[in-house]
């Protein structure tokens, strides 16, 4: 692919216009905002930074890289993708975090399956047949590798998509305005850049530590009022 074509592909897959169900998930933000733990733009920015540094950098990023590697092999290493999927399943404590990761991963895969992205149809059958779960970061590495997106670009897209998803949720909750959301998104470039400058943990050493939001996700399971799925 030419440089322009690669950039256009990254823009397409990193755009919130790309249907992946992301609009339905807040990853704990809805609960924390409704309980008054997050009240303003500074809080939302801090929350997004914590999700990037406390979870994405040490967990989702490594999973994505491993999935991208497995999917880039000739014919793809499907057994390895299943193994990575199982690691995400067992290391994600809160039920709505697990379900959210599974549902958004499946949604992303399903769109690629309909678009004819190579290999996605059989992986979709594996999920439907309960052979694996199809977690979001696994599916991101898998389908983006199959679309010819480089491993580095895949990480950039995933980090950007996480931030846009969180800020979009904050915007729709009324926690921030449209200008703040863009200001915060710009402020998150440096932390993302810093994360990408360092080696990601190997799969056997993935870790996440975001107890505040994970406990909020657990409380969300029984919330009467809920705009989001987690």
């Amino acid at each position: 692919m030419s440089n322009a074509s690669l950039l256009l592909a990254s823009l397409q897959h990193g755009d919130s216009f790309f249907p992946s169900g992301a609009v339905s998930f807040s990853w704990g933000l809805e609960t924390l905002f409704s309980e008054g733990a997050l009240t303003n733009a500074d809080d939302i920015e801090a929350f997004a930074r914590t999700q990037l540094q406390g979870r994405w950098a040490g967990f989702d990023r490594s999973v994505l890289i491993s999935a991208h590697d497995a999917a880039s092999l000739k014919d793809g290493d499907i057994d390895e993708l299943h193994r990575i999927d199982a690691i995400v399943e067992t290391q994600t404590l809160a039920r709505e975090m697990r379900d959210g990761s599974h549902r958004s991963g499946l949604a992303l895969l399903r769109v690629h399956e309909k678009m004819g992205t190579p290999g996605t149809s059989s992986y979709y059958d594996d999920i439907r047949g309960n052979k694996t779960r199809g977690h979001l970061s696994v599916m991101q590495g898998f389908v983006w590798a199959r679309c010819g997106i480089t491993k580095f670009d895949a990480q950039v897209i995933a980090a950007h998509a996480l931030c846009v998803g969180l800020l979009g949720a904050a915007l729709r909750l009324g926690a921030i305005g449209h200008v703040d959301s863009q200001r915060i998104l710009a402020s998150l470039r440096d932390p993302i850049d810093l994360i990408l400058c360092h080696e990601a943990p190997v799969l056997e050493r993935v870790h996440a530590f975001t107890p505040h939001s994970e406990i909020a996700v657990m409380r969300h399971e029984t919330a009467d009022s809920r705009l989001f799925a987690n």
Binding site: P19, A22, S24, A107, L227
Partner: peptide
């Protein structure tokens, strides 16, 4: 299916979770 305060998005621009539920 929760729609993240975007009922129109969930049936038009990004209906993926509704498709998933129907599937």
């Amino acid at each position: 299916v929760e729609t993240g305060a975007c009922p129109h998005t969930a049936i038009r621009e990004d209906p993926t979770l509704n498709i998933q539920a129907a599937d």
